[in-house]
């Protein structure tokens, strides 16, 4: 059997809200294989972002285990986890989350700094990626000098900086108009094809979902069905 990039095994996540414990994720098991494009869908408050954070190893489960590239993450130290995350996982956020006082180029170079890469190497890779997302002429602009769509393209370039095995995107088009959103999706799809990467997207967007090879539907912290693309229409009603 093919080795999964990320595997969740009966994962629970409970938040403490005052005195009440609120379970956000309730016993989810799933596996994501290399080269797949996966969507996670569900209404707000369903726990999909929490699930995504755990897939991205940003958060620890309250119960259950997460295996990143076959490695049990619960036994890693915080620093080891940060290192693994920086190396193997790229993040794209709804809010872009670029560093405001760094230029586009510097933002894309940053993940490579934490992996200890040489400056020349970093610069070359960052320029290449910014070219790919169509911002080759904007490398020295600050985020505040870029449009929302352009910022998200910088964020995508940053996510791919360390050639991650897994790229995670939390509603990447949620803050963009439909035209920019379309462009972002085109780029993601293009990356998926060209870099042979694995992409996990949380989205409300049916177009993205349509492109996905696999969709997880989350309601009340549980996976309801493993829809194949063909079954998607039923869900949409």
């Amino acid at each position: 059997m093919e080795k999964s990039i990320i595997r969740l095994q009966d994962v629970w996540k409970t938040y403490q809200m005052g005195k009440v414990e609120v379970p956000a994720v309730r016993g989810i098991s799933l596996e994501i294989f290399p080269g797949t494009f996966v969507s996670i869908m569900g209404p707000s408050g369903s726990g999909k972002s929490t699930l995504l954070n755990m897939i991205g190893c940003l958060d620890f489960p309250s119960k259950g285990k997460i295996f990143l590239d076959g490695q049990d993450t619960s036994i890693l130290s915080e620093s080891q986890l940060a290192q693994a995350r920086g190396q193997k996982i790229g993040f794209i956020f709804q809010q872009f989350n670029l560093l405001q006082h760094l230029t586009a180029l510097e933002n894309v170079m940053l993940p490579m700094v934490f992996q200890g890469q040489e400056e020349e190497q970093r610069k070359a890779r960052a320029r290449y990626l910014l070219d790919l997302v169509g911002l080759g002429d904007r490398v020295d602009h600050l985020p505040s000098e870029l449009s929302g769509g352009q910022r998200q393209r910088v964020a995508i370039a940053r996510a791919f900086a360390n050639k991650p095995q897994l790229v995670i995107a939390d509603e990447p088009t949620g803050n963009l108009d439909s035209h920019s959103g379309q462009k972002i999706m085109d780029i993601l799809v293009q990356f998926h094809k060209e870099q042979k990467g694995t992409i996990v997207v949380v989205t409300h967007d049916s177009i993205i979902a349509n492109y996905s090879q696999k969709i997880f539907h989350i309601i009340d912290g549980q996976i309801v069905q493993n829809h194949k693309q063909s079954e998607q229409t039923i869900w949409k009603q």
């Binding site: 991205g56 940003l58 915080e78 620093s79 940060a82 290192q83 995350r85 920086g86 190396q87 790229g90 993040f91 956020f93 989350n97 670029l98 560093l99 405001q100 940053l110 993940p111 934490f114 992996q115 940053r158 360390n162």
Partner: peptide, 16 residues
């Protein structure tokens, strides 16, 4: 705070 979150997400260790 948010910026620190981003740094850690993209691979900054505590020591960094």
């Amino acid at each position: 705070t948010k910026e620190i979150g981003v740094l850690k997400a993209i691979g900054a260790k505590n020591s960094a």
